[in-house]
Write a protein that binds this DNA or RNA. Structure first.
Lengths: 229, 229
DNA sequence: GAGGATCCATGCGTGGATCCTG
DNA sequence: CAGGATCCACGCATGGATCCTC
């Protein structure tokens, strides 16, 4: 019997309450259990399916299939993010936010930035990670609906402004994952030879490595800790 | 034995003479023969492989794999086009040139247009067409290196200016394949429901059917006739 | 006969992230 | 340990054209 595609198309939640309820039902389940409900096969290793867990969660929760400028749940302004955690429940990896505009629109401000929009309301779904546990057996944790508090937003804003200034000045060589307290910039590309478009110090268009904004692991640990208080 | 990918990567011709020599060797051969030299399978019908012959010729002649604004042979400024002909040797179909810019850059002139560049030097490869002959058995004709003469270019320019004026005015509803003596505009899309971006009469961006520039069959017949004189 | 509709391959960009080596 | 490198899926656009129905 072939898998049933209908099971994979979950109705979007009608209310924020319904979304959160659905997310709560995930807590304690294994990825195998969730995949089975959707008739989806579970990859043995993540190396060739790095985005699989995120997509699985989108499907189960009824998020719209990857549209462009919208959050995952536009009606509630909520962005969905899975968070790989260790046995201790603490995040183990940085979190990708969005691509870095290396040819920024003139006069873009933090208030209008994609980073701010993406991070204004995030539904975090912790999921066990680590090479010592099969993908199928990994357990899902309790969802956390988070928005940055005032001091967190100030730091994010500072990081973003610092990083964007380097880009606006065309100092692409100065970009490094070492910059930024909560927010960092790292490569986001097929491989190190991939080329995107940026502007150099003279304002000329140049080819350079595409990059993305990420949240540092130390910051997502803070988020999770705060929510457990 | 698996097909040998190396055979499919033909070295680009070093000189225009070499390109023409290579093209002459095609005359009289069947598509089966050429495909065999490249270890490529021949589709039974074109309905699911409409661009196959064109790609086969690119491969055999060593054209660069589909880059963006460049002609097929940038070094010689030569664009490659296959031309489906009947038993009588006359073209049977219109010829696609390029997509129509439905949001044209302000002040684009014929001299700078993609249509003019694409048509400034064309290497036509006639190939037998018709449902009454299998793809494998179709024979290739003698290549024709063509540039528009003065009167031809005047008509092409007039057609282009007429058509582009309609687009610049945002009168997209007025576009029709009936316009233009040599050059026409027809749909170029996955299907009639596909949507690209255009501008309406008020300058607002609107979604509309993507379209392409084509040469009328009557014009490519004229080209081929002239070259046989 | 020809205007309008359609088909495939491939590359690039975006969205989902984790891998891996010094 | 974390900075730099990499992987998949999918949509859209482009480049190659021919199909199909009045």
């Amino acid at each position: 019997m072939p898998p049933d595609p209908d099971k994979r198309r979950v109705r979007p939640p009608a209310t924020e309450r319904e979304l959160m309820d659905r997310a709560e039902t995930l807590a304690g389940r294994t990825l195998q259990q969730v995949a089975a409900m959707l008739d989806l096969p579970v990859p043995r290793r993540m190396v060739h399916a790095k985005g699989w867990i995120g997509t699985l969660m989108e499907n189960y929760l009824g998020a719209g299939a990857g549209s462009l400028p919208q959050p995952d749940f536009p009606a509630f302004g909520i962005e969905l993010k899975t968070l790989p955690v260790g046995k201790d429940g603490l995040p183990r990896e940085s979190t990708y936010i969005c691509t870095v505009p290396l040819v920024p629109a003139a006069g873009t401000r933090w208030e209008d930035s994609l980073v701010k929009r993406k991070l204004s309301r995030v539904l975090w779904i912790p999921v066990e990670a680590g090479a010592d546990i099969t993908v199928a057996e990994r357990r899902i944790g309790s969802p956390v609906l988070w928005s940055p508090d005032h001091s967190q937003e100030q730091v994010l804003r500072q990081d973003w402004e610092e990083l964007m200034e380097i880009i606006t000045l065309g100092d692409l060589d100065r970009l490094s994952a070492r910059l930024g307290k909560y927010l960092q910039i790292r490569p986001k590309a097929r491989d190190a030879s991939a080329l995107g478009t940026g502007t150099d110090a003279d304002g000329q268009l140049v080819k350079t490595l595409p990059r993305g904004f990420y949240l540092r692991t130390s910051f997502t640990r803070q988020i999770l800790s705060d929510c457990k208080k």
